[in-house]
Design a binder for these strands. Structure first.
Lengths: 253, 253
DNA sequence: ATTTACATTTACGTTGCGTAAAGGTGTATA
DNA sequence: TATACACCTTTACGCAACGTAAATGTAAAT
């Protein structure tokens, strides 16, 4: 059976360009060239192409493949072992990349909330990071990446629940805030309820509570434009109102 | 603080070529060009370069990075998520590649021995393969790659022991063969001991033994140049001697 | 005879720079 | 002050493995 470029291409599932390229780099030359200059491939070339594609699927470079298929007694196993090492390294790099991307996504999503958490240092990712920094290398060496990743996921999972509670509470704070804002009275019952809710919300990330810190945070809501933007998004003036309510709650002058 | 290409390059750990390239593709342009045509970078450019390098470390392409760092309110998280998906796909591909390379190494290592096994169809890798083919996909979906790989390793491990026993026995056959060869008598005690050892060795990969098959195999040792090469490596004529001994042992004419 | 399908070669584009080559600038030293 | 030496510039080829035209010739079918 003889094949032209396109026939062989269809047979093997490669483009004609690929076959011409393989001819060009001397990795697979046609049996002969017919009178019109067409490339004609025979059975030997079909077999060889299959070999080439096999190694190509393994991710081996064409130059290495050339060595493998042209040299009569080339040590293919050795080449494959070296190639395997490279692949393992690549996978390690990829794993690190993915982990970093995950961290970055976690850091940036939630945006302002994240900055919030960062300032409070009650940051779940930070915990994971610290854990990583302290034990990551050893644990990875002992139990392999999978274990560590699972552990991190677990930690993220746990924190996730907490985080969801926090978010829920935060939503309640916001809703109540806008309702209280309409009353115009930061000393009123609704406004003071907000202060309590807000305190509860804080305690998810604070180890210990103090009125001074609470008040300081309330002032920061007004001073920091990012928090201003967050609270004032739906209701301009809400940030000041919240601060006033908390000041009254904490007894700040 | 102002920097020239080289200073900034050293600061950030990139080549001057890289900085010029970033200028060329419009991803990081210097603050100004001085009278001599030198590129001068300021603080803003330092910060931006750090951003760029950060995303680059994540494996994001420069064009995407350009979108991220140039657009004021670009959805970086979304871009990262998409990038993450690509990375996960890549890792999957890599996993498959590595698995294939492993298989290939297993198939080719041992060379002639491997062909032997292949013919006998008592092939350990084949078992793994079949297991893979039957349950691999579902198991992988259920328990993840790590579990499957461990399982395969375990299977390989088990077969490894068996394989080691086989190898040991094969070595014994060989040693005895060369000793018996010197006697020149395939019907002698030593030669017949070889036939017994060889039968034991066969039973590691044969489910049932028959004298006919044993004799057929012995004939193949002579007919197949690869087996010839294997047995005749140290002692030309050893393949025929072994066949003769087995013929006598099995009572073949 | 014309269309259609297939063949050819040549050559630029892709990604992210490395690596010259050929030349101008700034500063320290003999 | 000349000169060495470090630093800057632009231009441009090279890399891997083809994709994608463009321009053109050939075989087969209508």
């Amino acid at each position: 059976m003889e094949y032209t470029v396109q026939k062989l291409g269809r047979l093997a599932g490669v483009s004609t360009r690929t076959l011409r390229y393989y001819d060009e780099i001397g990795i697979l030359k046609p049996t002969r060239i017919n009178s019109s200059g067409y490339r004609i491939y025979g059975q030997a070339e079909v077999d060889r192409l299959q070999q080439i594609l096999f190694y190509r699927e393994l991710g081996v470079g064409l130059q290495s493949i050339k060595d493998i298929v042209t040299a009569p007694s080339f040590d293919g196993t050795k080449a494959l072992r070296e190639h395997r090492e490279k692949l393992l390294e690549k996978r390690e790099q990829l794993n690190e990349l993915i982990a970093n991307v995950d961290k970055t996504i976690a850091l940036t999503e939630g945006g302002i909330i994240m900055s919030d958490k960062e300032k409070f240092e009650g940051f779940k990712q930070k915990l994971v990071d610290d854990n990583e920094a302290k034990y990551g290398k050893e644990i990875r060496e002992k139990y392999g990446d999978e274990t560590v990743n699972k552990s991190n996921q677990k930690m993220n999972g746990m924190s996730q629940e907490k985080y969801d509670e926090m978010t829920k509470l935060a939503a309640e704070v916001n809703e109540t805030l806008y309702a209280a804002f309409k009353t115009g009275d930061p000393a009123g019952e609704l406004a003071q309820k907000i202060a309590v809710l807000h305190r509860q919300w804080l305690c998810y990330s604070w180890d210990s509570y103090s009125k001074e810190a609470h008040a300081g945070l309330a002032q920061m809501y007004v001073d920091d434009p990012r928090f201003m933007a967050y609270y004032d998004e739906k209701q301009p003036g809400a940030a000041e109102f919240l601060r006033d309510a908390i000041f009254i709650y904490t007894g700040t002058k």
